[in-house]
Simulated assay, not measured.
Amino acid sequence: MNVGFIGIGSMGSLLIDTFIGSGALKPSQITASNRTLAKAICLADRHPGLQAVPSNRDAVIDQDLVFLCIKPMEFKNVIDQIRDVIQPQQIVISITSPVMIEQLEESLPCKVAKVIPSITNYMCSGVSLCMYGNRMTDADKNRLNHLLSYISEPMPISEQHTRIVSDLSSCGPAIMSYLLQRFIDAAAEETNIPREEARIVASEMLLGTGQLLTAGGMSPEELQRRVAVPGGITAQALALLNRELDGVFNRLIRATHAKYNEDLERVKVSLYGKEVNGP
């Protein structure tokens, strides 16, 4: 299987590194293009055998799968560049949430899927959120899922839930690490514990907590019940958090959805132009 990548920014390069590191793909199976060719060449130097190419068209020709790891406003130009070389049997996979499958199917003659990865995939952990276009057969879905299974748990979702599930899987690591950072900072400020010592303890705690919530089969509510003895120290801490964080995550979700809806509209205008009688 040959796989092309258009765009090797933060997530594109992460996917390539992880596919190779996990044994899912050999470097010789990957072709990559990037707006800055030098960056693709550096990636090829890091993974001998990987082919860095100067144009997006070259990253599409003779590939079985093509990952589009680009920003929403770059789609129009990239689609225009590759439309006449893409073949019906090829599968184009977008990792950009505000670009809809229907829009890609209208613009390209091939099979289309959307996959939202997570930084946790770098550790061959977490989920990959998978959505499939109408031209994808069961065999196509199995082929893509098999590739993704090397680095994640492929999870089919409805496209209408893209944003909220992405909040949990893709934004979640940054949100949880921010909360952990504040916990560590406060521990160092209040007690003078060396910050690095606090970081190690807290990070190992978060790893163990994740294992309890997955392999351990515990729900968040059960875990809290097991740790927080009524009237105890942890119960006191949870009571404070319940007061101070009331509504915070609701506002967070409303903020991410507002930005997502803004991006949806910008992509629509970029692909189709403004409606004559539109606002």
Rank of each mutant, 00 (worst) to 15 (best):
Q63K: 13
G273H: 09
G4L: 04
V127K: 11
S128M: 02
G217P: 00
L223F: 07
L147S: 09
I8G: 05
C171K: 10
C69A: 11
T137W: 02
E153G: 05
I116R: 07
A186M: 13
L15E: 02
S270T: 10
N250D: 14
C124Y: 07
M73K: 12
K71S: 15
M218H: 05
I95K: 12
G210E: 03
K26Q: 09
S107F: 04
T209C: 06
N77K: 08
G21L: 02
T191P: 03
I70T: 12
A188Q: 13
N134K: 11
G278K: 09
L43W: 05
E102C: 12
Q224R: 12
E102W: 03
I70N: 08
L65F: 10
G9F: 10
K26S: 12
V229N: 03
C124I: 03
L148P: 02
I116E: 01
Q89P: 02
C124P: 01
V3A: 07
D263P: 05
M218T: 00
A52R: 06
R243H: 11
Q181L: 09
P194T: 12
P48T: 07
P117Q: 13
I16R: 07
I16K: 07
M176F: 06
I20S: 06
R163L: 09
L207M: 05
N242M: 06
E197C: 08
Q29C: 09
S166N: 06
S152A: 13
I253P: 05
H257S: 12
L206I: 09
D138Y: 01
L43Q: 10
L206H: 08
E159T: 04
Y132G: 15
V92A: 11
Y122K: 15
P279I: 08
E275W: 06
R57H: 04
V267K: 08
I119A: 13
N145P: 00
V92I: 13
V127C: 11
K259N: 14
V201H: 08
G9S: 14
R195L: 11
S94H: 04
G126I: 07
Q87K: 14
A237S: 09
V3L: 08
Q81I: 00
D17E: 05
C110G: 10
Q87S: 14
C171A: 15
T256G: 10
C130E: 04
P117C: 12
G9V: 08
I93L: 08
H146T: 07
G12V: 01
L240E: 14
L147K: 10
E106L: 08
V92L: 14
K268H: 14
Q160S: 13
I253Y: 15
A40E: 00
E265R: 14
S152R: 02
L147Y: 05
R83L: 03
M123H: 06
R243I: 01
S177G: 02
S270Q: 13
D167W: 00
